[in-house]
Amino acid sequence: MSKYSKGNRVFAFEGEYKGKSGEVIDYQNIEFGMQKGCIVKLDEDSSTVCIPERDLEVENLNLEDINIEITNLKTQLKELAHQIPEKIAKEIPEHLAYLQEALKSKSKSEFLNEYHYISKELERTVNPDFVDSNISLKKLQHHGKNLPEL
């Protein structure tokens, strides 16, 4: 059994994939010394690689990282504006700001409410694959799920 769960966001701080981040999608039985490997789908190019557990740590976003991911989402939404109803195109950036505030205040329930609204509206108006494959949304979701209950 791995110390990482499927769906965990991880960052490689050592080894061949140093500096890369991605999502754990499976485990590998090949042993690297005394530890097993994790199958990670890398953000950079969506390739799937096996990385020794000893080279990984859970990806933790700081406030600057959160701001970058929210800015990335806002940019993507501007590019998709022609696909989204005008009302939703105005509301989603507002809800991203609320999401950002929830993350700053570490309010897990507020975060989950805002994330749910944003992801459901994007699924409905853009397409379900956009939400499932969007790295910024995945990073924010992972960070928010790991907020402590208040």
Rank of each mutant, 00 (worst) to 15 (best):
L61E: 00
G7K: 09
I30Y: 02
E101T: 14
S5H: 10
D65F: 00
K108G: 05
E123Y: 02
S133R: 13
A97F: 11
G33S: 09
G7V: 11
F130I: 13
G19M: 03
P148M: 02
E149R: 02
I51T: 07
I135P: 05
L103V: 03
T71I: 08
I118G: 06
K41L: 12
F13K: 14
I66P: 06
D43S: 15
E53Y: 08
H142A: 15
L147D: 07
S21H: 00
L137K: 01
V40A: 09
D43A: 08
L96T: 01
E114L: 01
M34E: 13
V131Y: 11
V10T: 12
T75W: 00
Q100H: 15
R124T: 13
D55A: 07
I25R: 09
F32Q: 02
A89S: 14
S109N: 15
S21L: 01
E149F: 00
E149M: 06
N113C: 09
C50W: 00
I92F: 11
E69G: 07
D129W: 11
E31C: 07
E69L: 07
Q83V: 11
I25W: 12
K6E: 06
K20A: 04
Y117E: 12
T125M: 11
N8H: 14
K90D: 13
E14L: 12
T75Q: 04
I25S: 03
P52M: 05
G22A: 05
L61K: 06
N62C: 02
A81S: 15
N62G: 10
E149T: 10
F32W: 08
D43Q: 09
L42V: 15
Q35M: 08
I70H: 06
L42P: 12
E110V: 04
R9K: 15
K90C: 08
E64Y: 07
K3N: 13
F32D: 06
Y27F: 12
Y4C: 09
P93E: 10
H82D: 11
S119N: 10
K106V: 10
D129V: 07
L99C: 14
M34Y: 04
K108T: 07
E86Y: 09
E14Y: 07
D43G: 11
S107G: 13
K139R: 14
S5Y: 07
T125C: 12
G37Y: 01
K6D: 05
N113W: 06
E64G: 10
E14F: 05
V126M: 11
M34D: 13
N60Q: 14
G22Y: 00
E14V: 07
L122P: 06
V40M: 13
E23N: 04
E16W: 09
K108S: 05
I135S: 01
H82Q: 03
Q100V: 01
V40T: 10
K18Y: 00
E110W: 03
G37D: 03
Q83K: 14
G33L: 04
Q76S: 04
N8P: 10
D65K: 11
E44T: 13
R9N: 15
E23P: 06
I25M: 12
I39H: 06
E79N: 08
Q141I: 03
F111K: 11
H142E: 05
